[in-house]
């Protein structure tokens, strides 16, 4: 497992530059948090790291690993049950674990068998969390993963993620500094549309060029 390094990454959507020369290192096996207001480009950073976007300039290295993610939206298949939505991303051998994981997050047997379209907002969020945590991978990205959860479920979910993360690199995207503290994350503030240089002085010059996803 390697550090994920973004080196002077710039990303624009049309005329609007969302990220300008962003440099950061997310250490392998550790928890990093991106904090900042809406529109600062936190989700764009997540999408770049997940390989859903390509940078317009700069390089990303170490991110060509198997990932799992809680997106800002739940992104559940509405016709599948809560359980089947998690099973969808898992090999068959791991299916028996799903019911147990859902139970840990407060799902009854009946709720686990409900189609996603009939679940409450909080339930959908928890299914998305279980899906991301149970899926295999070296990198876990949580984009506002705990929003919409009440205090009790939020605590349960945080504990579940802490336990289930194992040794994976965790990239936490949040508005809430307390959330980053709970995970003991190394935090980085992303101001909107400005040059950002995060992740420590050592970031520059240490970009691994062997497996970079570049703008070219």
């Amino acid at each position: 497992m390697r550090d994920i390094v973004l080196n002077e990454v710039t990303k624009a959507y049309g005329e609007q530059t969302v990220l300008r020369e962003f440099t950061a290192r997310f250490k392998a096996g550790e928890v990093s948090a991106l904090l900042g207001p809406s529109g600062a480009g936190k989700t764009t950073i997540a999408r770049l790291v997940l390989g859903l976007e390509r940078p317009d300039a700069g390089t990303i290295s170490g991110a060509d690993v198997r990932c799992s993610c809680v997106f800002q939206e739940d992104r559940l298949c509405p016709g599948l049950t809560a359980e089947a939505n998690v099973q969808l991303v898992l090999p068959h051998a791991q299916w028996p674990r799903v019911a147990e994981a859902l139970r840990e997050l407060g799902f009854t047997k009946e709720d686990a068998q409900k189609q996603a379209q009939y679940l409450s907002g909080g339930q959908k969020r928890r299914v998305a969390l279980v899906r991301a945590v149970e899926a295999q991978g070296e990198l876990l990205v949580l984009d506002e993963a705990f929003k919409g959860l009440d205090e009790e479920n939020r605590e349960k979910a945080v504990e579940y993620v802490k336990r289930g993360r194992g040794g994976r690199t965790l990239l936490l995207i949040t508005h809430d500094p307390r959330e980053a503290e709970t995970f003991g994350a190394k935090s980085m503030y992303v101001p909107p549309g400005e040059k950002v240089w995060g992740g420590g002085e050592e970031t520059r010059g240490e970009v691994d060029n062997n497996s970079e996803r570049s703008s070219s």
Partner: peptide, 12 residues
């Protein structure tokens, strides 16, 4: 499209 993106990330 958002589900297809999810499927791509999770290697479905």
């Amino acid at each position: 499209k958002s589900l297809l993106e999810m499927a791509a990330v999770f290697h479905v």
